[in-house]
Simulated assay, not measured.
Amino acid sequence: MKDNNFEFIFGLGGFVVGLIGLGYAYGSRKRLNGICDKLDSTIDNVSKTIDVDVPDYIVQEAIDKAVERRVQQETTNAVRKISKKIEDDIDLKVRTEIDVRSSTIRQEVKNKIAEEVAKISADDIADEIREEAKEKVAEKFDDELDDILSEFNNNLDHVSKIYSSIADKMAGIGSNKDFKISLG
């Protein structure tokens, strides 16, 4: 309960300090606005009674700079517009010319292709195909011959071992048993 009272009192104190701060800020703002209004009216009254002479060269310099900036802007805009117009005109002319010449170009391309195709000899193509077919068959045959040779060498090696074993038996090498061959 004691903690609750402390928190309540502390919160109430913070609230009161906040209200005081708001009141002070509002009052300060009101006083500063009053001072600003007095200064504005005083400045307006003083400026009505004082004549300020600006030398002609300063005025002329300001006018020249303003004219120069405006001329630069207008020149840039004009160049942009003219460039866009020229690009559009060139684009239109190119498209029109392409449309006009496209059928002629198509026909010329067809004629050129027909000429080149006519130059191709059927016999030359047949000879090229035969040569390529021969090479492919020779490659395949070489691969198969390599396989057959490998198999033959393996079989020959086995036969050689068998004959070697028979020869050893006949010579009596390896065992003391009699060697007999029967044919039936």
Rank of each mutant, 00 (worst) to 15 (best):
M1D: 06
D3T: 15
D3S: 14
N5K: 08
N5T: 05
F6T: 11
F6S: 07
F10E: 00
G11R: 06
G11D: 01
G13S: 00
F15M: 09
G18A: 05
G18Q: 04
L19G: 13
L19P: 02
G21K: 12
G23Q: 03
Y24M: 13
Y24W: 09
Y24A: 12
A25I: 02
A25Y: 00
G27H: 12
R29S: 11
K30P: 01
L32T: 09
N33A: 06
I35D: 01
C36Y: 07
D37S: 15
K38I: 10
K38V: 09
L39M: 13
D40M: 10
S41K: 08
D44L: 13
D44G: 11
V46W: 00
V46N: 00
K48T: 04
I50R: 04
D53S: 15
Y57M: 11
I58D: 00
I58L: 14
V59H: 05
V59C: 11
Q60A: 15
D64R: 14
A66Q: 12
V67L: 10
R69L: 14
R69E: 02
R70T: 09
V71G: 03
Q72K: 13
Q73W: 07
E74R: 15
T75S: 14
T76N: 10
T76M: 08
V79A: 13
V79F: 06
V79L: 13
V79K: 15
R80S: 12
R80Q: 12
I82V: 15
S83C: 08
E87V: 11
D88H: 11
D88F: 09
D88T: 15
D89S: 13
D91C: 06
R95H: 00
E97R: 06
I98W: 03
D99N: 14
V100K: 12
V100F: 00
R101A: 05
R101P: 02
S102Q: 13
R106A: 10
Q107T: 12
Q107S: 10
E108K: 12
N111Q: 09
K112I: 02
A114E: 01
E115N: 12
E116N: 10
V117E: 06
V117T: 12
A118I: 07
A118N: 10
I120Q: 03
S121T: 07
A122D: 01
D124H: 10
I125C: 04
D127I: 09
E128F: 10
I129F: 00
I129N: 00
E131H: 06
E132R: 08
E132T: 06
E135C: 07
K136M: 09
K136S: 08
A138F: 07
K140F: 01
K140H: 03
F141T: 15
F141P: 05
D142T: 05
I148A: 07
L149W: 00
S150Q: 09
F152A: 14
N153Y: 06
N154I: 08
L156Y: 02
D157N: 10
D157T: 08
D157R: 06
S160Q: 08
K161T: 04
I162S: 02
I162F: 01
S164L: 05
I166T: 02
A167K: 14
D168F: 06
K169M: 03
K169S: 02
M170L: 13
A171R: 09
I173F: 03
I173C: 03
N176C: 06
N176K: 06
N176A: 11
K177P: 01
D178C: 07
K180A: 06
K180I: 08
I181T: 11
